[in-house]
Design a protein around this nucleic acid. Structure first.
Length: 257
DNA sequence: ATGACTGCCTCTGGCAGA
């Protein structure tokens, strides 16, 4: 099975591109972030037409996540990240698909830093780590995939200096991500590209795509049950160059059945 | 050196993104 994640930056603006990508690459599960719509605006019919069933957690204007599955209904297991009842942002959705637990994650950006948004990001990362441990302890085959808004190491960006003051690059952000890996979660893209140089995001501004000024912030973290099944992982880079593209690319991992 | 683009909802400009 193929598990993919794609920060689409607006499901209404991106729908033709999204349908195209699903039909061309046919992931078993597709986790989406930044759908940027309320629940009632989600175009479930368009996905049904091409054989995908979906669940989604929307929010007006910002954030919003979804999980699409090829030919089967995702069985929802969690909506919203536990650990803060006051948190109303739609950034976490989780489901079982074909015996695999899959989470669609849109981790807070955290800029500007320092400040309340950065504090929220770090809190969110600790909540994620705490919750992920419960999945780990239950020995559920789990994939935590999405836009983590963390550049894990200097090898994961074209220029570490360019974003040195950015929330995506701060030691606290990186340490929190590293603690997840320290707990045993496997970064699929990094496993197949240990020397780095793989990007999943290119800014719309300043000709970043044309200059290949990108970085890696969309990640697939696998529990040991799934890491053992990894066959390949990659980035669907060409979609960043198409008309009306998202600023992120799809990222995927192929697992043995 | 600076700013640079895009989507959203709409107070069509301000916010958010990364």
């Amino acid at each position: 099975m193929r598990i993919a994640t794609f920060n689409i930056n607006g499901i209404k603006a991106r729908l033709p591109r999204l349908i195209e990508w699903l039909e061309e690459t046919r992931p078993t599960v597709a986790c989406l972030q930044e759908i940027k719509t309320m629940d009632e605006g989600f175009p479930a019919d368009a996905f049904e037409k091409i054989g995908y069933k979906a669940i989604w957690h929307g929010q007006k204007s910002f954030n919003g996540v979804a999980i699409l599955a090829d030919g089967v209904e995702p069985i929802e297991t969690q909506r919203g990240l536990p650990g803060d009842d006051a948190d109303e942002q739609s950034r976490y959705l989780e489901a079982d698909v074909n015996g695999v637990r899959v989470a669609s994650i849109y981790l807070p950006n955290g800029n500007p830093q320092p400040g309340p948004k950065f504090d929220y990001k770090l809190d969110w990362m600790e909540r994620l780590r705490t919750y992920a441990k419960t999945l780990w302890d239950a020995e559920i085959p789990t994939a935590l995939v999405g836009d983590y808004n963390v550049v894990p190491e200097d090898k994961d960006i074209w220029s570490p200096r360019a974003l040195a003051d950015d929330a995506l690059m701060q030691p606290q952000s990186r340490d929190a991500y590293a603690r997840m890996l320290g707990d045993g979660w496997t970064d699929a893209i990094d496993t197949f590209n240990p020397r780095g140089g793989v990007w999943t995001f290119w800014d719309y501004q300043a000709g970043a795509w044309q200059r290949d000024h990108g970085f890696r912030i969309d990640h697939l973290l696998l529990s040991p049950e799934l890491a053992d099944r990894m066959q390949a992982a990659g980035v669907d880079k060409e979609y960043r160059g198409r008309e009306k593209s998202s600023d992120h690319t799809p990222v995927w991992v192929e697992l043995a059945d």
